[in-house]
Amino acid sequence: RQGFVPAAYVKKLDSGTGKELVLALYDYQEKSPREVTMKKGDILTLLNSTNKDWWKVEVN
Results as ranks from 00 to 15, higher is better:
D53C: 15
A8G: 10
K40G: 05
I43L: 08
L47S: 02
T37L: 03
K39Q: 09
I43M: 06
E58T: 06
W55D: 00
T45S: 08
N51G: 09
L23Y: 10
W54K: 02
M38A: 02
V57A: 01
M38R: 00
P33H: 10
P33W: 10
T37S: 15
E35H: 07
E30A: 15
R34L: 14
G18E: 14
D53P: 02
K31E: 07
N51M: 09
E35M: 05
L13Y: 09
S32G: 11
N60P: 15
T45W: 13
A8H: 11
E30K: 14
K11G: 06
E58F: 05
D53N: 14
Y9Q: 04
K56G: 05
D27K: 03
W54C: 06
G18Q: 10
G41Y: 05
R1H: 07
Q29K: 13
K31A: 10
Y28V: 02
L47H: 04
D42F: 04
W54N: 02
V10D: 01
G16H: 15
S15R: 11
L46H: 01
E58R: 10
K12G: 04
W55F: 06
N51V: 05
D14M: 12
K19H: 12
G3A: 04
S32I: 04
S49V: 07
K56A: 08
P6Y: 04
D42H: 05
K19M: 11
V22Y: 10
Y26Q: 13
K19F: 10
Q29F: 13
D42Y: 05
K31Q: 14
N60R: 13
Q29V: 15
S49E: 13
L25R: 04
V22F: 07
S32M: 07
L46Q: 00
L13K: 04
K40S: 07
K39W: 11
V10S: 01
N60L: 14
K31V: 08
D42W: 11
G3R: 03
G16M: 13
S15G: 13
G16P: 15
W55A: 03
Q2H: 08
M38K: 00
S49K: 09
M38I: 14
L44Y: 11
Q2N: 08
E30G: 14
T17L: 13
D42A: 07
L13H: 05
M38C: 05
V59Y: 10
L44H: 03
L25Y: 03
D27W: 04
K40N: 04
F4M: 08
L23N: 02
E35L: 05
G41C: 07
T50A: 11
V57P: 00
D14K: 12
P33N: 10
K12C: 08
K52T: 11
E20F: 11
L25H: 02
Y9M: 11
L46E: 00
V22I: 07
G16K: 13
L13V: 10
Q29Y: 14
N48A: 09
T50C: 11
L44M: 13
L44N: 02
K40I: 06
W54V: 02
R34K: 12
N60Y: 14
Y26F: 13
W55N: 01
K40D: 02
A8D: 08
S49P: 05
L23I: 15
L21C: 10
T45G: 08
E35Y: 06
G16N: 14
T17S: 13
K52D: 10
E20N: 15
L23Q: 13
E35C: 07
R34G: 14
G41V: 01
V57S: 00
K40M: 08
V10I: 07
V22H: 04
L13I: 15
A24L: 02
E30I: 07
N51C: 09
T37P: 08
S15Y: 13
N51L: 09
R1V: 08
V10E: 01
F4N: 04
K56H: 10
E58K: 08
V5Y: 00
V57Y: 01
M38E: 00
F4S: 03
L47Q: 03
L23D: 00
M38P: 00
K39F: 10
G3P: 01
T50L: 09
W54Y: 06
L21I: 09
Y9K: 06
R34Y: 14
V36P: 02
D53E: 12
G18A: 12
V22C: 12
T45H: 11
Y26R: 15
V57M: 01
L44S: 02
N51S: 09
G16D: 15
T45P: 15
T45Q: 10
T17R: 10
E30W: 06
K39H: 12
N60H: 14
T50I: 08
A7D: 01
Y28M: 01
K56L: 15
K52R: 13
D14A: 13
A8E: 09
I43D: 00
V22D: 00
K56D: 03
S49A: 13
T50N: 12
Q29N: 13
Y26E: 10
Y26I: 09
K11Y: 09
Y26K: 14
N60G: 14
V22M: 04
Y28F: 07
V10C: 14
D27Q: 03
R34S: 13
A7C: 07
T50Y: 09
D42P: 01
T17M: 13
N51T: 06
V36F: 13
E20G: 10
E20R: 15
P6S: 02
S15Q: 11
A7T: 06
T50H: 10
V5P: 02
T17A: 13
S49M: 10
V10F: 06
F4R: 03
N48M: 07
S32N: 12
R1P: 05
S32Y: 06
F4V: 06
W55R: 01
W54G: 00
V22E: 00
T50E: 14
K31W: 04
K39I: 07
M38H: 00
T50V: 09
L44C: 08
K40W: 03
E35A: 06
D27V: 03
A8R: 15
A7H: 03
T37E: 03
K39G: 05
L23G: 03
Q2D: 05
L21T: 09
D27C: 06
L46V: 06
G18D: 12
V59F: 09
S49I: 07
D14W: 13
R34P: 05
Q2A: 11
W54T: 02
G3E: 01
L21A: 06
V5H: 00
L25F: 03
V59A: 12
L21V: 08
K12Q: 08
L44T: 01
E35D: 05
V22W: 08
K56M: 14
V10M: 06
A7I: 03
V59R: 12
T45M: 11
L46F: 03
K39V: 08
L46W: 02
L46I: 05
S15P: 09
K19V: 14
L44F: 11
V59I: 13
E58D: 04
P6K: 04
G16F: 12
G3W: 05
D42L: 04
T45F: 13
T37C: 07
W54R: 03
G18N: 12
N48R: 07
P6M: 04
Y9C: 10
P33E: 11
G3Q: 02
K31N: 09
V5C: 04
I43F: 05
N60A: 13
G3D: 00
L23F: 08
N60E: 11
V10W: 02
L46K: 01
A7Q: 05
E58P: 00
K40V: 08
Y26A: 12
T17Y: 14
S15A: 11
S32P: 04
A8N: 13
N48L: 08
L21M: 12
G16V: 14
K12F: 07
E30C: 14
I43P: 02
T37H: 05
I43C: 06
K39A: 08
I43W: 04
E58G: 07
W55S: 02
V59Q: 14
W54D: 01
K52L: 10
P33I: 09
L46T: 00
K12V: 10
L25I: 10
P6Q: 02
T17V: 13
W55T: 03
K19P: 14
D27P: 06
T50D: 15
Q2C: 11
T45I: 15
V59M: 10
N51W: 07
V36G: 02
E20W: 12
D27N: 08
N48Q: 09
L46P: 00
L46N: 00
V57E: 00
E58I: 08
E30P: 14
V36T: 06
K40F: 05
A8K: 15
Q2M: 09
L46R: 01
F4P: 00
K52G: 09
D53L: 15
V59L: 12
E35F: 07
Y26W: 10
V59H: 15
G3K: 03
Q2E: 08
A7N: 02
K12E: 05
R1Q: 07
S32K: 07
